[in-house]
Design a binder for these strands. Structure first.
Length: 478
DNA sequence: TGAAATGTTGGGGCG
DNA sequence: ACGCCCCAACATTTC
């Protein structure tokens, strides 16, 4: 009887999972395994919000495995030791997994593949985390793309060839002879101080929750996605990012949903597919430029001396910058583990271009607080905003938090929800309370500097400041 | 997936 | 009727 280990990592689903499918097709029994080894991800080990999500996603995976005659075997790392022990205990002849593309994991997986092969164990990695493999798309010169539009155009013929998502298996043979597992709780993924009630309210980690989120999105929001995706006050976005990050949903499933009859030709489906394209782009870039997690892609930015100011950084983190749209976003993040993408750009622009603080400070905070924290997306996003990344916003592109708020939160609902101390201000002043006359502030019960902070930085001057520093960088002066 | 400064146009008030 | 000015609306340039 042949036995195969399915090593689950961030493909926490049974549907459209090539590693699982191949294991089932090639062996008589499978052993589903998760190995907890956060330190193998180097300086970018999962943050607190990610760990919370992971706990519940693993719990869900175990539950759906149990419904199919199996269970999830959980072990502590190091990964290689755990896998070798499991091979020994079960007599497995193969280990299957879905490929990931973060630099530290690529290296680790390569080593594990070698070690397994040396011992005569088949080590098989499978695609599925991306629509297109990073090595499959190159420019005419054979280089990786650095600009999104031509990149996405080059992907197009490959997308046309995508097979439809595979079905989940009905039964997993081998469940009667599984090796021991540690309790999920022993992994210590959940916070000791229970700050996670806001997360639990908003999210349903796991494959079932992912499928429900996709169905809701396809039915309710995809049609108007093109316009509504920029509105933080509406449920206009897909909110699939954490599900995609943990592989509770394959990008191919999301892609297929947007292509469903009646939607495939809509503008909304087109822009949503394009967003999936950005996800591909960020992963491809990280694969080709692994150092960009910690260093700018544009090396000229190495010479920049960013501001260090603990008090201001803390004001930004906690949503006390005095800019309502920024504070609303930072509080939404803190409370729900997520922030609307439009608002991510606004808060990132303020941090890097008005406060002139290092994009890594922002990247690290997002990393710890986002349930969808993803090294490729986070790196691309922050370098894009700071202007040092691929297809980046030019250094002079600085968001004005008041104008952005007026444009994308026209009804002021987003501010009133997340910055309740301003809720009674009239529409005219709620995006810029520092311009309100005394009597209006009094009537609304707002005391600038006390009940709500004054702006940490003056936008015009700080913008010009930043421009000057970027300008010096461009011309080579310092 | 920028904002602000600057330039251009055209309608309307008015002497 | 005409020229002049104002200014909103839109376009272009610059950072």
């Amino acid at each position: 009887m042949s036995i195969a280990i399915v090593w689950f990592r961030r493909d926490l689903r049974l549907t459209d999972n090539a590693a699982l499918g191949e294991a089932l097709a090639s062996a008589d029994a499978v052993v589903p395994v998760y190995v907890h080894a956060p330190d193998e991800e180097g300086p970018w080990a999962p943050g607190a919000a990610s760990r919370w999500w992971l706990h519940y996603s693993l719990k869900e995976l175990d539950k759906s495995l149990a419904g199919r005659g199996s269970r999830l075997v959980v072990r502590h790392g190091p990964s290689l030791d755990a896998l070798l022990a499991l091979v020994e205990e079960t007599g497995a002849g193969a280990v299957h997994w879905s490929r990931l593309y973060e630099p530290a994991l690529l290296e680790r997986d390569k080593r594990i593949e070698r070690e397994l092969a040396d011992r005569g164990i088949q080590a098989a990695s499978h695609g599925g985390h991306l629509l297109v493999e990073p090595w499959a798309v190159k420019t005419g010169q054979g280089d990786p793309y650095r600009v999104f539009t031509p990149f996405w155009r080059a992907c197009s013929p490959l997308l046309g060839e995508l097979a439809p998502p595979a079905r989940a298996p009905r039964r997993l043979p081998g469940g009667d002879a599984l090796p021991r597992s540690v309790e999920l709780g022993e992994l210590g993924l959940l916070p000791t101080i229970r700050w996670d009630s806001g997360l639990a309210e908003k999210w349903s980690p796991g494959e079932t929750g992912a499928a429900a989120a996709l169905a809701r999105f396809a039915q309710e929001s995809l049609g108007a996605y093109d316009a509504d995706r920029n509105r933080p006050d509406l449920a206009g976005t897909s909110r699939l990012s954490p599900h995609l990050h943990f592989g509770e949903l394959s990008p191919r499933q999301a892609f297929a949903a947007a292509r469903a009859p009646g939607l495939g030709d809509s503008k909304g489906a087109e822009s949503f597919t394009r967003e999936l394209g950005w996800r591909e782009f960020s992963h491809h870039l990280l694969f080709h430029f692994p150092h960009t997690t910690d260093a700018p892609l544009d090396a000229r930015f190495d010479r920049l001396e960013w501001q260090r100011d603990t008090a201001r950084l803390e004001a930004w983190r906690r949503g006390r910058t005095g800019y309502p749209i920024v504070d609303a976003g930072m509080r939404e993040l803190w409370h729900t583990g997520w922030m609307h993408n439009r608002v991510r750009m606004i808060v990132a622009s303020l941090l890097t271009k008005n406060l002139f603080m290092h994009w890594l400070e922002g990247a690290r905070w997002f990393w710890d607080t986002l349930v969808d924290a993803d090294l490729a997306n986070n790196t691309l996003g922050w370098q894009w905003t700071a202007g040092c990344g691929a297809d980046a916003a030019p250094y002079f592109r600085v968001f004005n938090p008041v104008l952005q708020a007026e444009k994308f939160d026209p009804a002021r609902d987003y501010i009133r929800r997340w910055v309740p101390e301003l809720a009674r201000l009239p529409d005219k002043y709620i995006h810029c309370p520092w311009t309100a006359p005394r009597e209006i502030l009094d009537a609304a019960g707002v005391e600038p500097g006390r009940s709500y902070p004054l702006p940490v930085v003056e936008p015009r001057g700080s913008r010009n400041d930043a421009l000057a520093r970027f300008e010096a960088l461009k011309t080579g002066r310092k």
